[in-house]
Simulated scan of single mutants.
Amino acid sequence: MKKPFAIAIHGGAGTILRSQMTEEMQQAVEQALDQAVSQGHQLLAAGASAVDAAVCAVKILEDSPHFNAGKGSVLTTKEMVEMDAAVMCGKGRQAGAVAGVRHIKNPVILARDVMQQSEHVMLMGEGAEEFAAQLGYDYTEQDYFFTDRRYEQLLALKAEGRVALSESRYPDDHKFGTVGAVALDQNGNLAAATSTGGITNKRYGRVGDSPIIGAGTYAENHNVAISATGMGEVFIRCCVASDIAARMRYLQEDIHTACTAVIQGDLKTLGGEGGVIAIDQFGEIHFGMNCEGMYRSCIDIHGRKQVKIYADDV
């Protein structure tokens, strides 16, 4: 008898307005979410690990220009991409992360390699790319990541002298650009993976919560796996992912209670907007957000698929 397995993914949260979402854009986003969750689930069904399923799903979203990660990453004030990613395996709480990489096509793959093929947890910038080169990674030119959409967005924000969390004017002004996945495999292992291009017009090598274990990414066997998306600085200050896990571990709260307490509690009180996806040891899935929407999809332990965008989607 097969043990339960399930997967959930997200493509960012925030003020996602129906009035500014074109039908073409919505179809493209939903198609990418469907492809990512379906391929991750196929791996789980074939007996693959939760880590490999989560990484597979995130890689597909990184390869899409519709999400702020990998190919679709936003541009810094120097008109470059600087990407962050993390992977965590619930078994033994192994983790790997990279920050500020510029020439890696799929940062989530490199984060997994940091976890599996180094003695470290986080590598940054040139050091992370040196490690990648030793493993035989291709050097990806910045041209691969450049899109007119992101360049126009950068110019608009430079003119206003501000930064933005990804989807400026297309299809909305306040979407937090991150992609992520959480999974439970047939061996009972949990895993989480998160990847982001950060914020438009960012400076000084800014890093958000996505690659920080316990803030934007966390997995712990017999408990929960979490991937977050939102205002990175506040998610870091609130240690969102580890706080949810701690509430489940010590207070014995269920996944829905713990996620809601954190997302609608201190995070919101401190001005933090965004959401999380989470899956527990039984395969129960929770999508939590304190904003108007989150690109999200899942296939639960019964094989039921959902693809949603807005907070009020039922």
Score class of each variant (00 low, 15 high):
residue 182 V to H: 03
residue 77 T to N: 14
residue 201 N to T: 05
residue 196 T to D: 00
residue 3 K to N: 10
residue 67 F to N: 03
residue 79 E to G: 00
residue 253 E to M: 14
residue 167 E to R: 12
residue 157 L to F: 10
residue 258 A to C: 04
residue 143 D to I: 10
residue 251 L to A: 15
residue 169 R to W: 12
residue 81 V to M: 01
residue 282 F to N: 15
residue 254 D to A: 06
residue 249 R to T: 15
residue 289 M to C: 08
residue 296 R to G: 04
residue 256 H to Q: 08
residue 123 L to Q: 03
residue 56 C to V: 08
residue 76 T to N: 03
residue 270 L to M: 09
residue 90 G to C: 08
residue 217 T to E: 02
residue 168 S to C: 06
residue 80 M to A: 08
residue 13 A to P: 04
residue 11 G to Y: 09
residue 22 T to V: 09
residue 58 V to E: 01
residue 227 S to T: 04
residue 152 E to N: 15
residue 18 R to M: 09
residue 293 G to M: 08
residue 50 A to I: 07
residue 40 G to V: 08
residue 107 P to I: 05
residue 77 T to H: 14
residue 286 H to F: 12
residue 241 A to S: 14
residue 183 A to N: 01
residue 172 D to Q: 09
residue 46 A to C: 06
residue 94 Q to R: 14
residue 235 F to S: 03
residue 178 T to R: 10
residue 205 G to Q: 10
residue 236 I to M: 15
residue 274 G to A: 06
residue 2 K to G: 01
residue 191 A to F: 08
residue 8 A to N: 04
residue 277 I to N: 01
residue 192 A to M: 09
residue 307 V to R: 13
residue 194 T to K: 10
residue 238 C to P: 00
residue 285 I to E: 03
residue 173 D to R: 13
residue 198 G to C: 06
residue 215 A to Q: 04
residue 281 Q to T: 03
residue 89 C to L: 12
residue 142 Q to L: 12
residue 192 A to I: 09
residue 261 A to M: 14
residue 62 E to N: 04
residue 292 E to H: 09
residue 106 N to G: 04
residue 163 V to A: 07
residue 80 M to Y: 07
residue 163 V to W: 11
residue 144 Y to S: 01
residue 87 V to M: 05
residue 237 R to S: 05
residue 152 E to R: 11
residue 189 N to G: 01
residue 200 T to V: 15
residue 100 G to Q: 05
residue 278 A to F: 03
residue 87 V to C: 02
residue 169 R to T: 11
